[in-house]
Design a protein around this nucleic acid. Structure first.
Lengths: 224, 224
DNA sequence: AATGGCATGGCTGCATACAGCTAATGCAAT
DNA sequence: ATTGCATTAGCTGTATGCAGCCATGCCATT
């Protein structure tokens, strides 16, 4: 149940969360090699907790460790990307239906902040900021999910999809920022109306749009 | 993507799979304490790979490790059980819709074998066998799920729900066996008709029945 | 008799040393 | 020049020792 990175208290969880963040933000790109010893010295610990963190991440399918070689960030196959997105579409629809959490003013305020950033991005695009806003939006949506299991799954698919999003941002540039802006506007409206169910469907819709862009620009054209 | 226990090749994965199996079959009951040193000697390895396996399992939320105390099998709270079951209901509906795998004669044959066992159980009930058949059925259903992500989630919720099932089996006895028999009959029929989508809805239906039994017999009566 | 503090046993958390595996490099033979 | 093999450097996998933490039970004090 602790797949979401809430309260990373132990050393291992802290390291795990940091590595996951770097994978999300593409500081570690698919194919990159992560060396236990290197990370250990960076975090000022021994290899043991680093190994532990990497082991968990590998169990999530985001890195692959081979004996004698190293730990590399996995590049999802086209089929895997499709599977992840198909599931995200389905999970999104459940967000508002399965015991959602209450919407607070904090939510409404942070969306407004994101909107401002997205607006700025439309003028002067920056992939890094784009991915960061996406991340913030994800965290906000996740905080609305009351069902622990669903929230864990939502995070899991997010991590798997994150690097693909980054590629989309790179390819589309300011267009991606505008799409994000549109999504945020819809979310803001739904929050104003205190309509959690709408949030899910909005997510579903915009994930669908993103999926379509990915299909045409990244994935092979063969249909499932 | 490797949340399903297919091909546990490495030592750690082998140990992890074995411990998970024991949790499923309630060899380890909620509250039991698992000692790293003990398991290490049992598996004939050092504490290191055992620790690694336990760490992964704790990340799945099935055990909890506290420094200086030990690793204990967690007892899901009522709310958590509800969350898991709510999600299983939703996921079941997706089994046949999201890129299912082809149904083969192997599937049809193994269901027949399970039916025979379930029939025997109706006469002479044995909790252990009951849980085993449930496990086999789960593996069969999971093998029909083509979407890797969904399959991983299906396994995850199964592990979380497994010990609860065991309690149901203990409480209901032969009645549980009859319910299982009914479920297997429905599955067999769907397999004969080569209808993967029906499988999902059958699962959903019977999970719903089981959920209802759990609600009245195990969970507190307060509604969500 | 009851309670508070203290000592102790046992467990996990972490560090480190070593063994095993893999890939790449350089050398030799053709 | 090319191919094959042997060596080696560098990584992960495992074992083990030690430090830190927690719960239990005992003992002293009131």
């Amino acid at each position: 149940m602790s797949t979401n990175p809430d309260a990373p208290k132990t050393t291992v969880e802290t390291i795990q969360a940091e590595i996951l963040r770097r994978i999300c933000f593409l500081d570690y790109k698919p194919g990159d090699q992560l060396k236990e010893a290197e990370l250990a010295t960076e975090f000022g610990v021994s290899r043991t907790p680093v190994r532990d963190a990497l082991s968990r991440i590998s169990h999530l399918g985001l890195v692959e460790t081979r004996n004698g070689v190293g730990t590399v960030v996995v590049a999802l196959t086209d089929t895997q990307i499709r599977h992840v997105y198909d599931m995200r579409l389905e999970l999104a629809g459940l967000i508002g239906r399965v015991s959602p959490n209450a919407i607070t003013d904090r939510h409404r305020q942070s969306v407004k902040a994101m909107l401002a950033t997205a607006h700025a991005l439309s003028g002067h695009f920056d992939v890094r900021r784009y991915v960061e806003v996406n991340h913030d939006l994800h965290e906000l949506i996740a905080s609305l999910i009351g069902n622990e299991t669903l929230r864990a799954f939502w995070w899991q698919t997010y991590y798997q999809a994150a690097s693909t999003w980054h590629r989309v941002g790179t390819l589309l540039g300011a267009d991606a920022a505008q799409a994000l802006q549109a999504e945020l506007l819809d979310v803001a409206t739904a929050l104003e109306h205190d309509d959690a169910e709408a949030i899910g469907y909005i997510q579903r819709t915009h994930i669908g749009y993103g999926y379509k862009r990915i299909k045409t620009r990244i994935l092979g054209s063969e249909e499932v």
